[in-house]
Design a protein around this nucleic acid. Structure first.
Lengths: 178, 178
DNA sequence: TTGCTCCTCACGTCACGTGAGGTGGC
DNA sequence: TTGCTCCTCACGTCACGTGAGGTGGC
């Protein structure tokens, strides 16, 4: 029997998340005499099932429904969610395309608007912390190499420079793997 | 000078979206004597800039800030958004992995739990309309071929069957291109 | 008169985060 | 006594959608 705070820490959740689940009836804890929530082994087990589905992006309502329906099959929920994820990724890709187009219109009226230092400055303004712009590019290159290339071209970098960048990313991957 | 409904149709938006933008002060229409909103050419132009940024997934607050700040540069907003999109895609991929794992645990205790017809049935339960399951797979294959393969393996399909499926998708791409 | 568009509240969505104001345990 | 955890409201988030209840225009 543990209290909310401990249970939250066990799963790396916030306490308010557990309060919320309790209010929904999704994971209902017993109460001590003083009103404190007490989580039993059963609660913890149920919570772990909730969290694994939540980590998959399944909405809490569906998780609840699934757990309350005895003979229910989890597969249909998961496949539905896979469909949702694919639609999300599609939307994200479309948004990337829109952005690349907007950047082409906005940025490169004059040839080679951005030099490397200005570029760093712009990234900094965009909330990319100092020293993390490499990570930014790395993530972008990993998620959508084609779009990243488009971006670099739109910003006025040459093919050779882009190849040079790619080497840097690949090297950092190799170092990461070692 | 056009009314809300017409303006909404011009951009394929809902009327309530325009009411919302008006209430935010993002795109404020003039009013006729009877209280009807009237959208001028200026309004329409501003609206089109709003929409193109919204289509990129930029939050309305940032759009508003950008439009109100005279010498502001759009690039930093767009790059920030690009970073956000990459994080979204990363999250989506992680969720895919979680789901594949859950499906492996849930579905394939017995070898070859799913035969094609049961599989279709499960897809149907998951909200995939009759006759659209091919599209579902197609989209999944396009977004994340590796994960899709994992899924099919987890469901008990053999390598040969998967190759067969891939051919079907590729054929449908070719037909699409013609 | 009928149908269509327009108006203004006000509440709901989803999964919590963030105070405010107060109590229990060691 | 101090500091930590706990409690219960209640409001905010984001971009609208959905009625409810009523009016204007042709």
């Amino acid at each position: 029997m543990i209290t909310v705070g401990k249970a939250a820490k066990m799963f790396g959740l916030s306490r308010t998340a557990l309060l919320y689940y309790d209010s929904l009836g999704l994971v209902k804890a017993k109460r001590a005499a003083n009103g404190y929530r007490l989580y039993s082994g059963e609660n913890i087990e149920r919570l772990s099932r909730v969290i694994s589905l939540r980590d998959a992006g399944v909405p809490l309502g569906e998780i609840s429904e699934y757990l309350e329906t005895p003979g229910s099959d989890i597969c249909s929920i998961l496949l539905k969610r896979l469909g949702g994820i694919n639609r999300q990724i599609e939307t994200a890709r479309k948004q990337q395309e829109v952005i690349i187009k907007l950047l082409k219109n906005a940025g490169v009226r004059e040839k080679r608007k951005f030099r490397t230092d200005e570029w760093m400055e712009t990234l900094r303004q965009a909330g990319v912390e100092e020293g993390k712009s490499l990570q930014w590019h790395f993530l972008f290159e990993k998620q959508s190499p084609g779009q990243h290339r488009e971006l670099l071209l739109a910003l006025g970098f040459s093919d050779e420079e882009i190849k040079h960048f790619k080497k840097i990313y690949e090297d950092s991957v190799c170092r990461h793997r070692k």
